[in-house]
């Protein structure tokens, strides 16, 4: 998010504790982002009903929209567009380890449990 559109509320969190805050402006921004989130939730539902020819594509599109929504929440609602370096360092490790964990299922392909073992 561009620095110029930053809300006084978000700004006040870090720089000036007693700075006056434009409450109406802040709430307007939050409502706008909330509206986008609702809109994209509706789009997720609608997209799930469309047949893209392959179910994998449906899953991909659904997860892409969810990721975009998560980006909106974390950047604007959680102020990650304007945070101190330490937080990004913590999150960098989280992303690396989180992503590694999500790809653990590759192991299931490389070392599958054979049906004969379970019989």
């Amino acid at each position: 998010m561009d620095h110029s559109t930053e809300t006084p509320a978000a700004h006040g969190a870090h720089d000036s504790h007693d700075a006056p805050v434009d409450l109406a402006k802040s709430i307007r921004l939050y409502l706008k982002v909330g509206g986008y989130l609702i809109l994209f939730t509706c789009i997720t539902w609608a997209v799930a009903l469309i047949d893209f020819g392959s179910h994998a594509l449906n899953i991909g599109i659904g997860l892409a929209i969810a990721t975009f929504k998560v980006a909106l929440v974390s950047l604007i609602f959680m102020h990650l567009n304007h945070e101190r370096g330490l937080v990004y360092k913590v999150l960098l490790f989280t992303v690396i380890f989180g992503a590694a964990m999500m790809f653990l299922f590759v192991l299931a392909y490389l070392d599958p449990i054979k049906a004969s073992l379970t019989n």
């Binding site: 409450l23 709430i27 909330g34």
Partner: peptide, 25 residues
Amino acid sequence: FINTMVLIGSSVTVLSAWASLKARR
């Protein structure tokens, strides 16, 4: 779907609650 709406709404209000404190309201 309704629960998604409810949680998004509550995220907006919890932010507004914080901004209200910043604005001393």
